[in-house]
């Protein structure tokens, strides 16, 4: 099993955390993982992305160029990374903010209005978790249960009250692509 994932959006959308949660969860499930962020002068409001690898084997290149899963949370990311989906791979598009449709026919595309769904849940900040729910539903890279366990561990007692809404976000995201 080898998953190569790109998660991209603008700073603050939680695209790095989305990738980290996949990596954390992969580690918990006994896989080899790597998480490589873009870093640069483009932090606040700029674009952010990360490459994640989850594999049964040792991780070779941590830089993902032919991804089997690409998540795009804003329009510039769609334009930049649509072409990085390997043939047969899956593209997850945040249709709340991206009004483009892909013209590619060799990939599977899921348009998920993650901001709208998050707002319905009463917390716009869980849009990334809605997206993660959709990704995990369609790819099974890791189990949503593991993702929540990792989030619980990293949130600690102070933020424990935020776990239920994150759990709901994962479930809603999964539902949206069922």
């Amino acid at each position: 099993m080898l998953h190569q994932i790109i998660s991209a959006g603008f700073g603050g959308q939680g695209v790095l955390l989305l990738g980290q949660l996949i990596a954390y969860s992969g580690l918990q499930e006994g896989k080899n993982v790597s998480w490589l962020p873009s870093y640069g002068p483009e932090m606040r409001g700029g674009t952010a992305n990360c490459s994640v690898v989850v594999s049964d084997e040792e991780v070779g290149s941590p830089v993902v160029t032919e991804a089997d899963v690409v998540v795009v949370m804003n329009r510039p990311s769609f334009e930049k990374y649509e072409g990085n989906v390997a043939p047969g791979g899956k593209l997850f598009v945040n249709s709340s903010l991206i009004d483009l449709k892909t013209e590619r026919t060799d990939i599977e595309v899921y348009y998920v209005p993650v901001n709208a769904i998050a707002e319905e849940l009463g917390n716009g900040r869980v849009a990334n978790m809605v997206m993660l729910g959709a990704v995990l539903e369609k790819t099974g890279i890791v189990s949503p249960k593991t993702a929540i366990a990792c989030l619980t561990a990293s949130f600690g007692a102070k933020k424990a009250h935020l776990i239920p809404v994150n759990e709901q976000a994962l479930a809603k995201g999964a539902e949206a692509v069922k």
């Binding site: 990596a23 580690l27 790597s34 998480w35 490589l36 941590p62």
Partner: peptide, 10 residues
């Protein structure tokens, strides 16, 4: 290199 500095791994 910069990658070793920035990458997360187990």
């Amino acid at each position: 290199d910069g990658m070793i500095g920035q990458i997360m791994e187990p």
